[in-house]
Design a protein around this nucleic acid. Structure first.
Ligand SMILES: NC(=O)c1ccc[n+]([C@@H]2O[C@H](COP(=O)([O-])OP(=O)(O)OC[C@H]3O[C@@H](n4cnc5c(N)ncnc54)[C@H](O)[C@@H]3O)[C@@H](O)[C@H]2O)c1
Ligand SMILES: NC(=O)c1ccc[n+]([C@@H]2O[C@H](COP(=O)([O-])OP(=O)(O)OC[C@H]3O[C@@H](n4cnc5c(N)ncnc54)[C@H](O)[C@@H]3O)[C@@H](O)[C@H]2O)c1
Lengths: 286, 286
DNA sequence: ATGTCTTTGTGAACGCGTGCACAAAGATAG
DNA sequence: CTATCTTTGTGCACGCGTTCACAAAGACAT
């Protein structure tokens, strides 16, 4: 979630592809690539939609934003569509990427094949810990933070991945931006502030789990209690260096005396399907 | 993004909290927790919104769905709100979780502190590789896949995390569901099919990067080429990596006769390159 | 050519999410 | 108790995204 302004001047009216559509293109591409490997020549919107897990009407509308690449009565040419989507997403070019913070997660990311398989090339692995410098991870020697700016400039890196502790995320983001990076994928649980023109997308495992927990709670019985009732189980422990941490403490109702029954007994509305369709997976860049 | 059905009868009108709001609650909770640690008693919607990186009006509306916990002229009581949101998200209770696939990513997740800090407890680590069995990861001994059902039942696990290669994701999901899991967090790049009533959320690094690439491409110059134009243009730039094997070659728009399509880039590279575990979907239309 | 059958492309309706703007609630001062 | 000032809670309008439903484009058969 980009911290700075989050405006949408709707300036993108002419050739702009809807954000929701852009977010689905990679999904279609993946399905198409699989078909391509099986040498399937064409595919109908119905089949492809099924493979991508979406509605066929939605898929057709999405493709309509790219132009008319289908043939009525037949479907879409797989190879041609793979190319068109790849081009639209900018995957026909090479994107050098730097990963900052080579800890548990950073190392896993460096080893991840999903990078290279789509035109993303790990240009460098950066870590502030001197003990890490020179150490090979996924076949690449880790470089010290001091090299950050140089690496970015020399390789023309425009995409950076942050996998440092939360406390270091903002400073790292600032350096990345100052050095020329204009797109950041942030794994640290923090809201980053970046100047306009810089895109930030975040991946937060903790948030995903919390959303699941919410739905899970709905499925099996109602809320724990009215809320101002007894203190709940307290959950302590926390990983070091997180903005998070303090255990869930029972209420404290201060300020003005909380008139009781603030929580309106959740009416057991069962119509609410568990389908978490609407939830946005991540963030929509500005 | 649930894979299975994705409808929204809109039946949820009374007590249902909007999905978009639910997705933001963890964000507010994080900001509030930080304030709580600094012993800040109250906070205004403006301040909190800023800390969470959202619009203040949006935040107030979100909170309005939970009830009226604020005090006009003053703001919100931090401790009280932390408790209310935690309760709403179901964090006042303990959620045992199983992680399946203890490879690079799975191990990182097991070591992640964000789990425990919010009521999520790693009940077990499961891996199919016999060599991994018994091996301690993050202080927990890895168990063989055979133990999956037993572990789920004995611990009452309802949330499962999949970090196996894409090809194994669906089978693992099936077993998880059969054993009683009703919420799945999937890290494998595949569309999962699950019965109604089971929530699936996915985290796909590759998709995030592709979305960033799309915007990045827009920022610096337009598309490589019109695309609809005659193929053969030097778009063939295509970095060595290319999009998953098929060398993103401008396929001819065989709108009518698709002859050569039968022999399209005969999957030359085998998914062994330092990055191609199983990125491709194994799911096919019914 | 003409007819039939399949599947695309999209107009239109609808619902959700966002953000503005403001009345009202309540704190605080006099 | 009254006045003023701060900040919430929300009615309302708007735009985006989703989905339906269907005309028409084109393949294919005769
Ligand atoms: N491990 C996970 O599964 C997981 C999941 C979601 C989010 N996260 C988040 O990702 C981040 C990293 O997690 P982790 O488990 O890998 O932590 P980690 O402690 O294992 O690794 C962090 C690494 O960052 C380096 N680092 C610290 N400050 C730095 C700086 N200023 N510049 C460059 N490098 C710096 C450290 O030397 C260390 O190697 C954390 O913010 C965590 O909350 C982790
Ligand atoms: N590493 C990353 O940063 C990253 C990022 C995004 C997505 N992913 C995806 O996450 C998944 C795991 O990635 P990884 O890098 O950890 O891969 P990995 O190969 O290191 O680990 C996979 C693990 O799963 C185990 N496994 C295989 N089949 C299994 C089964 N049926 N049941 C239980 N365990 C099984 C393997 O023994 C192995 O230990 C992949 O699908 C990958 O595409 C990884």
């Amino acid at each position: 979630m980009a911290t700075g302004r989050n405006h949408r001047p709707a300036t993108s009216r002419s050739r702009g592809i809807p954000d929701a559509t852009v977010a689905r293109l990679p999904l279609y591409l993946r399905a198409l690539t699989a078909l391509s490997e099986r040498s399937v020549p064409t595919v109908s919107s119905e089949e492809l939609a099924s493979a991508a897990g979406v509605n066929s009407a939605k898929l057709r509308k999405d493709f309509s934003y790219l132009g008319s690449y289908g043939t009525r009565g037949v479907g879409y040419d797989v190879e041609y569509l793979v190319y068109q989507i790849s081009r639209e997403l900018g995957l026909t070019q090479d994107w050098p990427v730097v990963i900052v913070g080579i800890g548990n997660l950073g190392a896993a990311l460096a080893n991840y094949g999903g990078f290279a398989s789509r035109g993303f090339r790990v240009a460098a692995l950066i870590d502030a810990d001197p003990a890490m410098t020179g150490k090979p991870v996924a076949g690449i020697a880790v470089q010290h933070s001091d090299e950050l700016e140089r690496v970015i400039e020399e390789n023309g890196v425009s995409i950076g991945v942050i996998a440092t502790p939360a406390a270091s995320a903002q400073p790292v983001a600032d350096r990345l931006v100052a050095a020329g990076v204009t797109s950041i994928l942030n794994f640290a649980p923090t809201v980053l502030s970046v100047p306009e023109g810089v895109d930030v997308r975040k991946v937060d495992l903790s948030i995903e789990l919390q959303i699941l927990a919410f739905h899970e709670q709905r499925k099996s019985g109602e809320l724990p209690d009215d809320g101002r009732a007894v203190p709940g189980t307290d959950i302590g422990e926390d990983a070091g260096g997180g903005v998070t941490g303090s255990p869930v403490a029972p209420p404290a109702a201060s300020v003005t005396k909380r008139t009781a029954s603030a929580a309106p007994a959740a009416t057991d509305r069962r119509g609410d399907e568990p389908g978490n369709d609407g939830d946005l997976p991540a963030v929509m860049p500005a």
